[in-house]
Amino acid sequence: MTLPTSDAEVPAFWQALGLPGLADVHVHFMPPRLLRKVWAYFDAAGPLVGVEWPIRYRWPDEERVAHLREMGVRAFTALAYAHRPGMATDLNNWALDFARTTPGCVPSATFYPEPGAAGYVAAAIDAGARVFKVHLQVGGFAPTVPELDPVWGLLADAGVPVVVHAGHAPVGTAHTGPEPFTQLLARHPALTAVVAHLGAPDYEPFLALAEKYERVALDTTMAFTTFFDQFMPFPTAALPRLRELGLAGKVLLGSDFPNIPYPYAEQLAALARLDLGDAWLRAVCWENTARLFDLR
């Protein structure tokens, strides 16, 4: 297989695998004002970023949607995340409206530990939300705080997945790492959760959680790229476990588009360079996410 070296070569990548396109579980669309603030934080190499991180796709929404479609990304999320009280409901309304007018976008929502969280999460599910996003690092809270216990229970009962930034990458905090997430799963073992960035840098403990819990999966976001590997390389000895999990439906393509400092194609080339087989690439790049969201 020829590895894609530019975004123009991405369609040839998935076509060679016999796929109908790509499904990306970790894409960000946010209200423009909020996204500009996020980009400014990356530009300043803020304390939760820690390194120079030039945003590659600093484009308006419509241009980024068009680019995803040109590459053949048939399904993608619009992950926003609340970092303080009182903002989740507005974010959810924006994201759900965005999905209604954007073919291919999986209706997305978020929450924060605050009074009323279970109510607006239930309302978002009723309005069509099919995936939630929580960023423990940016939000600065533990997943086990009492305010979130009914929220996790609601999501577990509904079978709605939540993408959780639970790992220390790029900068660890008191509430990131495998320990708090392990405590959460002990309370809510039926939770459908997707661990962002394969749980980097604590890859193996998060692999173990995906092996143990039926509904826990991992996304590939930024993992194995040249940029990410210089800071947090994946242990070569764990690749057989990653292969088995992928073939079992528990590894999903994620990219962090548009907030990446390299071409989208690099994420796909990085996965292909692992040489885990075409069946694994098909599962990760389309089949596993298609199954999670019942894509046709």
Score class of each variant (00 low, 15 high):
R100M: 04
R56I: 05
A156C: 10
L191E: 02
T144P: 04
R36F: 04
F257E: 02
H188E: 05
T182M: 07
P103A: 09
F13G: 01
Y264D: 04
V121S: 04
R130T: 06
E63P: 00
A117G: 04
E214H: 13
A99T: 01
A290N: 03
F141A: 03
L34N: 01
N288M: 13
F42V: 05
F257L: 13
R296G: 14
Q267M: 11
V164T: 09
V171C: 13
A44L: 11
P20K: 15
L184A: 07
D43C: 08
L154Q: 12
R291F: 09
P32A: 15
S108P: 04
N259V: 14
H67R: 14
M1F: 12
F231R: 13
G139I: 03
L276H: 06
W286Y: 15
E9K: 09
A158K: 15
P201E: 10
D275G: 12
T236E: 15
R291I: 09
V27W: 08
A124F: 12
Y120D: 05
A123E: 15
D7Q: 10
V216I: 14
L96A: 07
P47F: 11
F257C: 01
Q183V: 04
Q137F: 00
A12Y: 04
H135K: 06
N288S: 11
Y213C: 10
A265C: 11
L274Q: 13
L155G: 02
P170W: 01
G50M: 09
A66G: 12
G119T: 07
L292D: 02
M87Q: 13
V73H: 00
I55W: 09
L276F: 05
K37N: 12
L271W: 02
L218Y: 08
P189A: 12
F231H: 14
D126L: 12
E266L: 08
R33P: 00
R58C: 06
L281V: 09
T173P: 06
A283L: 08
A290W: 04
T102L: 00
T89L: 10
V138I: 14
F228W: 15
A99R: 00
D61L: 13
V284F: 12
A109W: 00
P161H: 05
